[in-house]
Amino acid sequence: MNETPGPDGREESLAERLARIETLLTPARDELSHAERSLEPAWRRVTRGEPRWASTGAVVTVVAFQFLLPHRLSVQPRWLMPVVELLLLAALVAGNPHRIERRSGGYRALGLVLTLAIGVANGYSAARLVVGLVRGTEPAPAATLLLTGGAIWLINVVIFGLLYWELDRGGPAARAQGERDVPDFLFVQMQSPELAPPHWEPAYLDYFYLSFTNSTAFSPTDVMPVTRWAKMLMLLQSVVSLMTVVLVVARAVNILK
């Protein structure tokens, strides 16, 4: 009862018939899978890891600015934080010297520790500066005060750019592997893929631009935060930037008068 004539006229069992149907359906299934992958947004596909140079250059720039800050605003001893940051950076570069593709829990933790170290050092400098301005004990002349405040503000931009870059969709290595479907930040190229090259992924410079515009406009511009942590982090950056700019400029104007 379970046997029917096959294509060659030979009686075939139900199992043989199902196997033949499966063989016939396999090419169509493969074509459908390929079509689905081609329709998938470029930023969700597996891509090459981004080059290392941009994020490395940002950290080196921060270290250089830290040495330019007044002695009274730096963590003591003055060389401690820059040396710690450079050692952490060297370990990260050794793990991914050219492109950020290798992913592990330890490597990701190392990157977050580096960002935290820079943030702590700059937070200390900003707090010392703000306290001095509020109490009226900051001795710097107007020009020096503006330069110092500008350096702290710029370091703050780099720090938040690194945070956005390290946290969005699991970090640069996870983004390259397309491990997470839901973005934390929605870039224009994600909404309008025709404006971006194939396999586009946000890189550090995109997050630096996001950080810079948030520090100047005190609100999102063309990049929208999607998740709650992204919104709260952008809110924190706007508050820190606003306090630094307002207090430094007000004090400098008062000195000039």
Rank of each mutant, 00 (worst) to 15 (best):
P183G: 07
Y204K: 06
F185D: 01
H199R: 15
P198I: 08
L195V: 12
F187P: 01
L210H: 04
P197E: 15
G178W: 13
Y209K: 08
E201F: 05
S215N: 05
V188P: 07
F187S: 02
D184W: 05
F212V: 04
F185S: 02
V182L: 13
Q191E: 15
N214F: 01
D184L: 05
S211A: 09
F208V: 04
L205W: 08
M190F: 04
T216N: 11
L210S: 01
H199V: 11
E201T: 08
D181I: 15
D181V: 15
W200F: 13
A203M: 08
A203R: 12
P202F: 06
A217L: 14
M190L: 03
L186C: 08
E201V: 09
P193L: 00
L186P: 05
L186T: 05
Q191M: 08
L210I: 05
Y209Q: 03
Y204G: 02
E179R: 14
S192W: 05
G178R: 12
N214E: 07
H199G: 14
L186Q: 11
P202D: 13
Y209R: 09
N214K: 00
V188K: 13
R180A: 11
P197C: 10
P193T: 06
H199M: 15
E179L: 15
V188Y: 13
A203K: 11
Y207K: 04
L205C: 07
Y209M: 05
F208T: 02
Q191N: 10
F212A: 06
N214A: 08
S192M: 06
E179A: 14
N214H: 03
T216Q: 07
E201S: 09
S211I: 02
D206N: 12
G178I: 12
H199A: 15
Y204H: 11
P183I: 04
E179M: 12
S192T: 08
F187V: 01
P202A: 08
T216R: 02
A217F: 12
W200R: 05
M190S: 05
Y209L: 06
L195R: 14
P197D: 14
T213W: 00
H199F: 15
V182G: 07
F208A: 06
Q191S: 10
Q191I: 03
Y209F: 01
S211N: 03
V188F: 10
W200C: 04
P193W: 02
E194G: 08
P197F: 12
N214G: 04
W200I: 04
L210W: 00
F208L: 10
G178S: 12
E201I: 07
S192L: 04
E201H: 12
F212W: 00
Y209G: 04
Y207S: 04
M190I: 01
T216A: 10
T213Y: 00
P197V: 11
L195A: 13
S211G: 02
Q189K: 02
A196N: 11
M190Q: 13
L205Q: 08
F187C: 03
L186A: 12
A196S: 10
G178F: 13
T216Y: 03
A203Y: 09
W200H: 09
P202N: 11
A217K: 07
F185V: 03
H199Q: 15
L210G: 01
G178H: 12
V188I: 13
P202C: 10
V188D: 14
T216L: 12
P183A: 07
S211M: 01
L205D: 07
W200Q: 07
L205M: 11
F212H: 00
